[in-house]
Structures are given as structure tokens and as C-alpha cells.
Computed example of a mutant assay.
Amino acid sequence: MVVESAQGSGAAAGQDTLAQEFVRFSVDSGVLRFGEFKTKAGRLSPYFFNAGLFDDGAKLGKLAEFYAKRLLASGIEFDMIFGPAYKGIPLAAAVAIELARLGRNVPFAYNRKEAKDHGEGGTLVGALLQGRVLIVDDVMSAGTAARESIAIIRAAGATPHAVALALDRQEKATENGQDVNHSAVQYVRQQLGLQVCAIAKLADLLQYLKARGDGALAADHARVLAYRERYGVDEG
């Protein structure tokens, strides 16, 4: 299968066309909002990404298309998909459907928060966890959900191999209430040994705001840039 590069032929130098389309889609859908929002780390963030607002068939289908295109372009190899409860469940199902539509049919599974004590029982639903497993989630704040998914996958005898995200916030994680000099994504890559693939990053959001830098969006760009300068990680 031939997969188009995320870089369009007419894209500006350094611009990730797929990421820019995704940011615009997220803003237009009301999923990516600007203002003042408190994060899990207790920071006041000038933007908020709530994947739960991809809440109808058209938006979820478009989101799955972005995931599938990014995954196929990444070259990451995997044998199946795992969606951690709860947001990861519809994401895993939708991405599996879109990948199949594009000619890459893979099984998927997800977990329950509470074990079922009747019927088939257990906490896992769907295909048997085996081979190289791709975890699909929305964002990653501290890597806690990724560690939980990794434990589930390993307990089933499979190999946690990679993580696909909608947005990489590219900001410092916290440990015991203190900022550390790496992001959750960097931790998962460097300490847990998994590949990580994100549809877009905070840098892409800043590029989007800068390109549309007039009125309210110019003010949003300034606030997001200041947040990035304070809490951003060095990816060099």
C-alpha cells in the first residue's frame, strides 16, 4: 500500500500538513479550546483538548482517519490494537475500522475497569492480546495510563510495542508534585521502551495559531507560547 507523506507538496518548510489539518479540525469541532484550564498537574493551561467531544459519528470517523494516516505514515509495525478504558475504547474500535478500510485489517481489544463475574468474565474484551500491541489513547499527562496498559498487555503474554496519541502536549511531567525535565511521552519512549506516534504536537498548535495570528488567535498564540516556554521540554 502506498501512503502519502504527511508533508504536502505545497506545505511550507517545516510544516506538517496532517497535523495542521488535525488542529484545525479539533478547533472547529470545539474539542480544542482556549481560555484557562487547570491540568492534572495543577497548572493553569491556556488550552484544553477534550477528545470526549468527538461525540458523533462524523467527528469520530474523521478522528480515526487522522490516526490511521499518521500510523501508516509512521512505519510503526504492530499486530493488534489495545484501547484502555474508557476513552481508548471507542478510539481503538474506530481506528481499527479505518485501518481496515485502508487495507490494514488488525484485531483490537480493550479492558474493563471492573472485572465481570458472569458470562466470559475477566477484564479484557475483544481479540486475544498477542504479538506486538499498539495502545491507542488521546493525550498523555503523566504516563500512568500507559503503564497500566503495559501491565495488562504483559500479563496477557503479549508485547506492548507502541502508543498512538491525538496530541503530544510536549510539556514537563510531574513526579511527587514536582516538575521533571522530561515529558510523559519522553518517559514512555526512553524509560519504557515504546515507540510513540502523535497526530499533532504543541508545536503544531503554535504554528497553527501563528499562521492565523490576528484578533483572539494572536492573543491565544501569545498565551500558549508563554506556557510552552515555562513548562515545555527540550526535545533536542
Rank of each mutant, 00 (worst) to 15 (best):
S183I: 04
K172S: 07
I153R: 03
H182T: 00
A162F: 00
I153A: 11
A166D: 09
L165T: 05
T159C: 11
R154L: 11
D179I: 12
N176V: 04
A166L: 14
R154C: 12
N181I: 13
K172T: 08
I152D: 01
Q170V: 11
E148H: 03
I153C: 00
I150F: 07
D168N: 01
A151K: 03
I153M: 04
H182C: 10
R147F: 08
D179P: 03
R169K: 14
V180G: 08
A156K: 05
V180Y: 08
S149W: 06
A158V: 06
L165M: 08
I150T: 12
E175D: 13
G157D: 00
A162V: 08
A166S: 13
V180W: 02
Q170T: 10
D168G: 02
R147H: 11
L167N: 09
E175Q: 15
I150M: 11
I152C: 02
A173G: 11
D179Y: 10
A158Q: 06
I152M: 07
K172I: 10
N181G: 00
A184L: 07
A173M: 15
G157N: 05
D168H: 07
E148C: 12
A151E: 14
G177M: 15
Q178M: 15
A173K: 10
S149F: 02
N181P: 03
A156Q: 05
I152Q: 13
I153K: 01
T174V: 15
A156W: 05
L165S: 03
R154D: 12
N181Y: 04
V180I: 03
S149H: 08
G177P: 06
A155D: 11
V180K: 04
G177S: 03
